[in-house]
Amino acid sequence: MDKIKYRLVYNRKKQLNKQGTALVQVEALLNQRKVYFKTNIYLRPEHWDKQTSQVCNHPQANDLNTMLFEFILHLQAIELSLWKRGIPVTLSLLKDAIKKDKP
């Protein structure tokens, strides 16, 4: 079974909203296919560090980074629970599990 790779993506659409912020998403990559999960965290461009893919120069930077990494851990926990049951993990299964909010 292949492992899904996760990474944080800021402003994937290269477009800011009316408040001047953009969405942070989690990209899941498996077998050359990608699925994006929204984190509901919107940031200004100056609050995102492209090199480290983390929130910086923000009053709640530590808390936001913790929330983002906990979301990735949640995705990995769903993936692991599927592995333990012997179910081959696919991106569509992961997406359905997130929608139902349970593995």
Results as ranks from 00 to 15, higher is better:
Tyr36His: 05
Ile78Ala: 07
Lys50Pro: 06
Thr52Trp: 04
Ala61Glu: 13
Lys84Ala: 05
Leu80Tyr: 01
Gln19Glu: 08
His47Met: 11
Leu16Gly: 07
Ala61Asp: 06
Thr90Arg: 08
Tyr6Asn: 02
Ile98Trp: 04
Lys50Arg: 15
Leu93Arg: 01
Ile41Glu: 09
Pro103Lys: 05
Leu29Asp: 06
Val9Ala: 05
Leu8Thr: 07
Asn65Val: 01
Phe37Trp: 14
Lys18Cys: 09
His74Gly: 03
Phe71Gly: 01
Glu79Ile: 00
Asp2Pro: 13
Asn11His: 11
Gly20Glu: 10
Asp63Leu: 14
Asp49Tyr: 10
Lys95Ala: 15
Gln25Phe: 09
Met1Ile: 05
Leu68Asp: 03
Leu80Gly: 02
Thr21Ser: 01
Glu27Ile: 12
Leu94Cys: 07
Leu8Glu: 02
Thr52Pro: 01
Val26Ser: 03
Asp96Ile: 10
Leu29Asn: 14
Met67Glu: 09
Thr66Pro: 02
His58Asp: 08
Val55Arg: 02
Asn40Ile: 10
Ala22Gln: 13
Ile4His: 10
Ala97Lys: 01
Lys38Thr: 06
Gln32Val: 13
Leu93Ile: 04
Ile98Tyr: 00
Asn40Ser: 14
Phe69Leu: 12
Ala22Met: 14
Pro45Ser: 14
Arg7Gln: 15
Leu80His: 00
Tyr6Cys: 01
Met67His: 10
Val35Asn: 08
Arg33Asp: 08
Ser53Cys: 08
Lys38Gln: 08
Thr39Leu: 04
His74Gln: 13
